[in-house]
C-alpha cells in the first residue's frame, strides 16, 4: 500500500477545508471499502481525512415528521434504531442483509452510498476498466459479468452499484444532504447515483469538494409496511443478484400505491417507475404484479451470463409484492 498521511479534522468546516487544501485528499468513513481498494492499488489517495469523529452520528426527528440520519452513523446502529425499524423496516432489513456483522460495525451511511462497484474488472488493476481508467475499455462487457447490469448499462460499463441500503433509500424518496465550503445542498437520492453513459468513471453527482453530511427520510406512512428482499448466491455475505425494496398499499383489492426499487441490476439503485405507474389502480393480483414487473423489465438487456436476472427480477418483484399484499399492510 502506498504511504499516506492521515488527518482528523475537528469540525465539519475543517474537513471541508482539508478536502480542498490538501492535494490528493479523500474522506474516510468506516474504511470498509476504501481501505480495501487502497490495498488493491485501485484508490491511491495521498491524504485520508477521517470524518467519523465529526458530529454526524445522530439519528434525529425532522420537523416534517421524518428522520435525519447522520452520515457517520454506523450501519449496525442504523439497523438497530427503533424508529427506523418501526417506520422504515425496509431500511433496517436492507442494512442487515449487507456485508457481515463486523463490517456493519465499521461502515457508515455516507460511506455506504459512496462505495464502489465490485465488478471483477474494476477490482483488478491489470484489467481494462473505463471506471478506473476512462478510455481503457471495459473488460467485463465480454468477460465475466454475471453480477453485471441489465438496466441502464452502456457499452462502456456494465457495473452495478453494490449497496443494499441505497436501494431502500431510493424506494423511500430520501434526500442526501451535502456540504461544501460554498454551502449546503440537498440531492434527491435518485439523482445522487448516475448511469454510466459515456462517463462511467463518475459514480455519483457529488462534487469533489462535497461531503455527505446526512440522509433525510420523508414522513411516509406507507413505509411502515415495506420490505427488502435480496436474492444472492449464498445465504449471507454476498452481493445481490437482484434485490427488491418495496412498499404496497392495497384498498379493497386494488393497488392504491406501489413503490419499488431494484438493486443489483444497474449502475445505480433502480426506481421502478414504469411498474409503479402500471400498478396504480389495478387489482392487487399475482398476475398484475408480474405484468407490472415485466413492463419495468421490458427495457432490460442481458448478456449470456446476466440474461437470467431479467426473469429473476420479475419473479422477485412479484413474490415481494405478493408477500406485502398477503401480510395486509402489517410490517
Amino acid at each position: 500500500m502506498k504511504p499516506i498521511s492521515y488527518a482528523v479534522p475537528a469540525s465539519i468546516d475543517e474537513a471541508l477545508a482539508a478536502i480542498v487544501d490538501l492535494p490528493g485528499a479523500k474522506f474516510l468513513g468506516g474504511g470498509t471499502n476504501l481501505v480495501d481498494l487502497m490495498r488493491e492499488g485501485i484508490e491511491t489517495p495521498e491524504v485520508l481525512v477521517d470524518v467519523t469523529r465529526l458530529p454526524l452520528a445522530e439519528i434525529t426527528e425532522t420537523p416534517a415528521g421524518g428522520l435525519r440520519i447522520g452520515a457517520a452513523v454506523r450501519n449496525t446502529d442504523l439497523a438497530a434504531n427503533l424508529a427506523v425499524r418501526q417506520r422504515y423496516p425496509v431500511l433496517a432489513q436492507a442494512v442487515l442483509m449487507g456485508a457481515s456483522g463486523q463490517i456493519r460495525n465499521m461502515a457508515t451511511v455516507g460511506g455506504n452510498l459512496l462505495q464502489r462497484t465490485r465488478c471483477l474488472y474494476f477490482y483488478d488493476a491489470a484489467a481494462a476498466c473505463n471506471k478506473r481508467d476512462l478510455g481503457s475499455g471495459c473488460g467485463a462487457v465480454a468477460g465475466h459479468n454475471r453480477m453485471g447490469a441489465i438496466l441502464g448499462a452502456s457499452e462502456h460499463c456494465v457495473a452495478v452499484h453494490p449497496s443494499d441500503l441505497a436501494v431502500a433509500l431510493v424506494m423511500l424518496d430520501a434526500e442526501v444532504e451535502v456540504a461544501s465550503r460554498t454551502g449546503t445542498r440537498r440531492i434527491p437520492i435518485q439523482d445522487f447515483h448516475r448511469l454510466p453513459g459515456e462517463s462511467p468513471h463518475l459514480d455519483t453527482t457529488l462534487a469533489a469538494d462535497e461531503l455527505v453530511t446526512a440522509v433525510t427520510l420523508p414522513a411516509e406512512p406507507l413505509a411502515a409496511s415495506s420490505r427488502y428482499r435480496k436474492v444472492r448466491d449464498r445465504a449471507s455475505y454476498a452481493f445481490a443478484l437482484v434485490s427488491v425494496a418495496a412498499a404496497l398499499e392495497v384498498t379493497n383489492g386494488t393497488v392504491s400505491q406501489a413503490r419499488v426499487a431494484l438493486g443489483g441490476v444497474a449502475h445505480k439503485p433502480w426506481r421502478a417507475t414504469t411498474l409503479e405507474q402500471y400498478l396504480a389502480g389495478r387489482p392487487a393480483t399475482d398476475e398484475e404484479f408480474a405484468a407490472a414487473a415485466r413492463a419495468e423489465l421490458a427495457q432490460a438487456v442481458g448478456t449470456p451470463s446476466t440474461e437470467f436476472k431479467i426473469e429473476l427480477a420479475v419473479r422477485t418483484i412479484t413474490a415481494t409484492l405478493r408477500r406485502l399484499r398477503d401480510e395486509g399492510g402489517a410490517a
Partner: peptide, 15 residues
Amino acid sequence: MNPSLAEYHVPVHAD
C-alpha cells in the same frame, strides 16, 4: 478474476 474470499464463494455458516 476472482482471487478473493469475497468473490470466490466458499460456504458461510448460514449455508
